[in-house]
Design a protein around this nucleic acid. Structure first.
Lengths: 313, 313
DNA sequence: ATCCTCATGTGAGATTTTCTCACATGAAGC
DNA sequence: GCTTCATGTGAGAAAATCTCACATGAGGAT
């Protein structure tokens, strides 16, 4: 037998196509055109003198030969990727790419970045505001901090924090336009951080005010913008025990009502299983859990009950 | 992190260099110039932004990063190669490359090839006369049949047959120049199949004739040529129970003395461990062992004792 | 049946990677 | 000092990879 290894780049295109079940998807993953992938598969078949895919219907189907080859190749490439990641990632040096829910990134992580930087000066963070779980499967992203139900397949996932929701407003706004009852709320602008007003509905239902007339309301796209609008006195937003905690402690936001409700969703930390073992990922995950714990120990007043008494403090 | 896999072709050059411990050796293995290997290693180091080899003395030495990467990459490439070989090798179809001791190839395997071909018509044999154990590590060779002590590292090895050694000569030669005693042997040409006459010395020692004057002797290079010279009446060669058995049975060679000695070495079947699991290799190995067994069952007279009585038969 | 969308194939040319070649440096041995 | 051997490097050639534009065909909606 002449050569022991098949051509490796065409083999990579084959593996991605077979794993994804689609030339187009493989092309997207590899950041090339579908034509490039098609050429490479053809080149591999010619080189090995074997047909690897049946071509008939719209999508390719593995032949028995292709099915023989795929599992070992997928595993081998996975091992190479893992060894490369391990080698390139000393525990506390290198680049770490993180996506994070926008409000959490702005109001919780960014104000605490100096703590992480002091402990791990060799780590360069690449932060991106996003709540898209598709990033879990992107080779460009190492860790995702997501707001949701925690049900993301093929990923390592760990609950970081539940949260309580309650209305928040700026002191300036409340001075000029008092808010002491549900009736007063009618005269204010409701600021939504979600797309369909679901979270305000949950709080209003708990307050027996689901039918409150909504004179004015804005949908701000995400909780970061609804919170910022509240800070600027544009209306009443729903804050929570995590992202709004510092703002409330500093008096930049006031909690006008005692009532809070538990959100249906929570914050989770998630990453690809292969990344979880990477030292640099581990130190970040450890840090973010430790930081939350340190918040709870240092400032017990940030719990929901005591937080909600701050207006009468 | 940007890409999960390093550039695969440069990685291949790195792996070969690190495994072989030499740029030049890797170049020979990959059939490229040392310059190409040097460029590829450099390209990999640039791509990974890691130094993989220390460059100081004459030969490269792996860095700690390189040492982290190598085992996984070597294993992964091995798995890809094995899966490729498995996929390309249905049990009884394809090319099988064999090296074999010259005498065994000429006098035992070649006369029996029809048996193999009838059972496995889809297998194309590529036969090469050689007793060089280095072929065990060549990607171009699937199975080696070697004469030696069986001690070849990193190879799967199995004893195929021991053998007895004894003088043989053509009937024509013995008619014109009888051979009935050790004294008669002085008048004949001794034909050596090894490089230093060691095997004749063993036989002569057992015959208490180690000091027999050697008027004429030829060193034929290997046992195939010494046997062929004997067939042509050029002298007396040492035959054995395997390669000479058919010739003796057909009367083309005669065994003038009753004495035989066990050779220090034996015939072994050997291959790379990864090849042993390959179906096509397995069928060949099974065939050659079964053929030897069939010989013993069908022709008991080919055992050494009865073989040596054939002159008086 | 027609039209649209989506998936994959293919040839030609552009771009990138791989390779050769020739020269270079340095270590080790005689 | 000289020779041999090992590896590095730049420039240009060759091969591999990629893009682009066109093509075909399947499936679904009308």
């Amino acid at each position: 037998m002449t050569s022991r290894l098949p051509p490796l780049n065409p083999l990579r295109a084959f593996e991605a196509t077979a794993r994804r079940g689609s030339v187009s998807a493989a092309a997207r993953e590899l950041n090339v055109t579908h034509g490039a992938v098609s050429h490479q598969i053809k080149a591999l078949e010619v080189s090995l003198n074997v047909t690897l895919f049946e071509r008939g219907a719209k999508r390719l189907k593995l032949t028995s030969e292709g099915a023989l080859l795929l599992p070992a190749v997928t595993q081998a490439f996975g091992e190479i990727a893992a060894a490369t990641a391990q080698m390139r990632r000393p525990a506390t040096t290198g680049e770490l790419s993180i996506t994070c829910v926008p409000a959490l990134l702005s109001f919780w992580i960014v104000p605490r970045l100096n703590s992480f930087t002091e402990q791990f000066p060799g780590v360069r963070l690449k932060l991106s505001a996003s709540n898209d779980p598709a990033h879990l499967h992107s080779p460009d992203v190492d860790v995702c901090i997501l707001y949701g139900d925690g049900n993301w397949p093929d990923a390592w996932t760990r609950l970081w924090s539940n949260l309580q929701l309650f209305p928040v407003a700026s002191p300036t706004l409340l001075n000029s336009r008092p808010l002491r009852s549900m009736r007063d709320l009618e005269d204010h602008v409701l600021l939504h951080g979600d797309a369909d007003g679901r979270e305000w509905n949950i709080w209003l239902a708990a307050a027996d005010a689901i039918d409150l007339p909504r004179r004015q309301q804005h949908f701000m796209g995400d909780a970061r913008f609804s919170t910022e609008a509240a800070l600027h006195g544009q209306g009443i937003a729903l804050g929570d025990t995590i992202t709004a905690s510092n703002l409330i402690a500093r008096g930049e936001l006031i909690v006008p009502f005692d009532l809070s409700v538990t959100a249906n969703h929570a914050f989770y930390v998630a990453c690809r299983p292969a990344m979880r073992a990477t030292p640099i990922v581990r130190v970040f995950i450890d840090w973010i859990f430790a930081s939350l714990e340190a918040d709870h120990l240092a400032e017990p007043q940030t719990s929901a009950r005591t937080l909600l008494r701050s207006r009468r403090g």
